[in-house]
Design a protein around this nucleic acid. Structure first.
Length: 103
DNA sequence: CATTTGACTTGTG
DNA sequence: CCACAAGCCAAAT
């Protein structure tokens, strides 16, 4: 059985090292799905709660979390990122420093 | 099969 | 920085 796109995406996300982040488009591209940035977000939205996928290391191309500030998901992601030595500036991550561009 | 919706991206103004 | 539009894709209805 061939891995579905969702599984490939999960695998890519899983390869993001702690202390680094990636964007939806980047993850999609790394998974071999150049234009599936949205699909990546969809896959993450459907992640089982017990999943080991570090979805919190995936943010949008602006270096910001894709949730509205103050929402539970937003806070959860922010906390996790900060726990990985990722520094925020005004709800923004410095992609220049933390973006994972592959190996 | 057509429409809607969404954790997206990029370009314009 | 913010708003809008166009492009792209998957799953749900």
């Amino acid at each position: 059985m061939e891995p579905s796109n969702r599984e490939r995406v999960w695998q890519v996300i899983h390869s993001i090292p702690a202390g680094k982040v990636s964007t939806y488009g980047k993850v999609a591209a790394m998974a071999g799905l150049p234009n599936l940035a949205r699909a990546v977000g969809r896959y993450l939205s459907e992640l089982p709660e017990g999943s080991k996928i570090p979805w919190h290391r995936v943010i949008n191309s602006q270096g910001k979390i894709s949730f509205a500030v103050g929402t539970e998901r937003f806070l959860t992601q922010k906390e996790k990122l900060q726990g990985e030595d990722i520094n925020f500036s005004n709800n923004r991550v410095d992609l220049k420093t933390y973006l994972w561009q592959g190996e």
